[in-house]
């Protein structure tokens, strides 16, 4: 009990006994999961383990049937919708890269900037020097400065992934949820992405869902393995990948 109380006082994201089912199928089954401030965490697990559903619940897309979901120990995320949660400081990258394809790279970042998002504020918005500087800074970080005036539709798959990560950075979130960031990337891009995420994790918490075990090894962080809607094992990559249950359920013999 004591340990739970302790983790609660310093957690950024706190899930306890979260369950949700769709038409009888239990997507999450009393899942408990804690992320501390400044932590970079990797999540692995077989298809249907509930990884994406967990992200849906954290970002307000799906409501849990039962359970507690707290942000910064006091904000009940189950009562908020996507926009509220995004404004609280939780950013999310989708499994399939989702950027505004008919906007330029620059406009994509401008839209993502953490500014007043009201109807009239956006109607009368003009680009300030600070905002300009911030966008340029992010462009550097995601290595897209040279393509800033191109339409996002024309970017390569990997570049779209980066642009989406850049948009999350522009949001200035406290917590980033990244769903399969290196799917479809070349090896070089994968390594660069790992560097990028580690860089980002210096200033904020990041949760990465990934299948690529090499990539997770590159990250070198605490790993949580999900299966059938609950946590199977948690710990370092070596610890988790030697766990017999994990081998049985996910890695295979």
């Amino acid at each position: 009990m004591n340990t739970i109380a302790e983790t609660r006082t310093k957690s950024l994201l706190y899930l306890e006994n979260v369950s949700v089912s769709f038409d009888g199928f239990k997507a999450l089954n009393s899942l408990s999961f804690v992320v501390e401030p400044g932590e970079l965490r990797a999540i692995i697990g077989p298809n249907g383990a509930g990884k994406t559903t967990m992200m849906d619940i954290i970002t307000g897309k799906t409501r849990p049937d039962t359970g507690t979901v707290l942000f910064e120990d006091q904000i009940d995320l189950t009562k908020k919708d996507e926009a509220d949660i995004a404004q609280l400081g939780i950013g999310r990258k989708f499994q399939k890269p989702t950027v505004f394809e008919s906007h330029t790279v620059w406009d994509n970042l401008e839209l993502a900037l953490n500014r007043d998002r009201g109807v009239f504020a956006t109607l009368f918005y003009t680009l300030s020097p600070e905002d300009k500087a911030r966008i340029e800074e992010i462009l550097e970080t995601i290595r897209l400065t040279h393509r800033k005036d191109e339409l996002a539709a024309n970017l390569s798959h990997g570049q779209k992934q980066w642009l989406e990560i850049g948009m999350l950075l522009a949001q200035e979130p406290k917590l980033l949820l990244v769903d399969e960031p290196v799917a479809g990337m070349t090896d070089a891009e994968t390594i660069e992405t790992a560097e990028l995420l580690k860089e980002i994790a210096k200033t904020r918490s990041v949760v990465v869902v990934e299948h690529d075990m090499g990539f997770i090894r590159d990250l070198g962080v605490k790993v949580t393995c999900l299966a059938e809607g609950s946590v199977l094992a948690e710990g370092s990559i070596d610890f988790v990948s030697n766990d017999p249950k994990v081998i049985e359920n996910y890695l295979g013999r």
Binding site: F22, D23, F25, A27, T52, T53, D56
Partner: peptide, 9 residues
Amino acid sequence: RGLFALKGR
């Protein structure tokens, strides 16, 4: 999604 809606992802 109507009276008899399908649910889920």
